[in-house]
């Protein structure tokens, strides 16, 4: 699982790897840390050859002017001054030599049998196979949101007031709760009936899960089925006995697109990438015959 990484500080870029290719995709990817990281990593490692014909393993190693400029800037940034000609030359020689080793190592298959290298290459393939999903429009975001109400909808909620009879203070809770109700039915002000409750008497825009956490499932069930505008009770919680009056009910509704845009965008793109990845992996699988000899039990 790839942890979204902040972009690396780029050091050296291999010839031709980044230049002039699909700037828009790169710009888009820049807003997506995972892709940015993967692209940066891919560029730095030259692994994006997967999508492009692999070059000759044994062949010329050309460090172009752009590449050399990049190394010079990197040395300057690290050293605090422009590198001397000798320092630059040494760095370039070192890179070229490392590239020789890298290509020879790859040709010898030294990347095989190393679990870390294997894991990294798999991760890069997985990211790459996700592809570059196009930037979704607001209409697409809204369709995505409405298709997943469980993830994005603002849940139904109620406003209510309560009168509380503290179970710990009233050994005969049921009787005292009934007399509290009688006072309410006699139009006594609820602020003068019952005991103080730590969260108060007035609750606004409470979702069912919020009510369940505070008062328990049976209470929530009764509350969300209570008619508005009149006292309902007794309801029981772990704290004691309650009479509630629902003041307003708000149905579940989709959250405004503005508040969700970034999250919707990220979720939709990830969904598209993951679907693309699955398709690509299925396609690649057909190139291989897979045989699994299950161990006997």
């Amino acid at each position: 699982m790839g942890e979204p990484e902040p972009p690396a500080t780029p050091t050296v870029i291999e010839e031709g790897a980044a230049r002039g290719r699909r700037p828009s995709a790169f710009a888009r990817a820049g807003r997506e840390p995972l892709v940015y990281f993967a692209l940066a990593g891919a560029l730095l490692f030259g692994v994006d050859r997967v999508r492009h014909p692999p070059r000759e393993v044994r062949g010329d190693i050309v460090l172009t002017r752009d590449f050399v400029d990049g190394v010079r800037r990197d040395l300057a940034s690290r050293g605090g001054r422009a590198p001397t000609r000798a320092e630059l030359r040494a760095a370039l020689e070192r890179f070229a030599e490392e590239e020789v080793l890298y290509r020879e190592a790859a040709a010898l298959g030294l990347d095989r049998g190393d679990p870390i290298v294997r894991r990294r290459m798999i991760q890069k393939m997985e990211v790459m196979l996700g592809g570059d999903a196009p930037e979704p429009s607001d209409a697409e975001l809204m369709r995505w949101r409405d298709a997943h109400p469980d993830r994005y909808a603002t849940p139904a909620s109620v406003d209510f007031i309560q009168v509380f009879v503290d179970g710990a203070r009233h050994p005969d809770t049921a009787a005292d709760c009934a007399s509290a109700r009688a006072r309410l039915d006699a139009a006594e002000a609820p602020t003068s009936v019952g005991d103080p409750f730590v969260d108060g008497a007035t609750f606004t825009a409470q979702s069912r899960s919020q009510v369940e956490l505070r008062f328990g499932g049976a209470f929530a069930e009764a509350l969300f089925n209570a008619p508005a505008g009149r006292w309902v009770g007794p309801l029981t919680s772990r704290y004691g006995c309650h009479h509630v009056r629902v003041e307003a009910v708000t149905a579940s509704r989709p959250a405004p697109i503005d508040a969700l845009r970034e999250r919707l965008r990220a979720d939709l793109l990830e969904d598209q990438r993951s679907a693309a990845r699955r398709r690509a992996i299925q396609r690649l699988r057909t190139r291989h015959t897979i045989r699994i000899d299950e161990a006997s039990p």
């Binding site: 990484e5 690396a8 500080t9 780029p10 050091t11 990281f37 730095l44 990294r120």
Partner: peptide
């Protein structure tokens, strides 16, 4: 921490 865990970083 980022540099040490990001291959290719200086």
């Amino acid at each position: 921490r980022s540099i040490c865990t990001t291959p290719g970083a200086a």
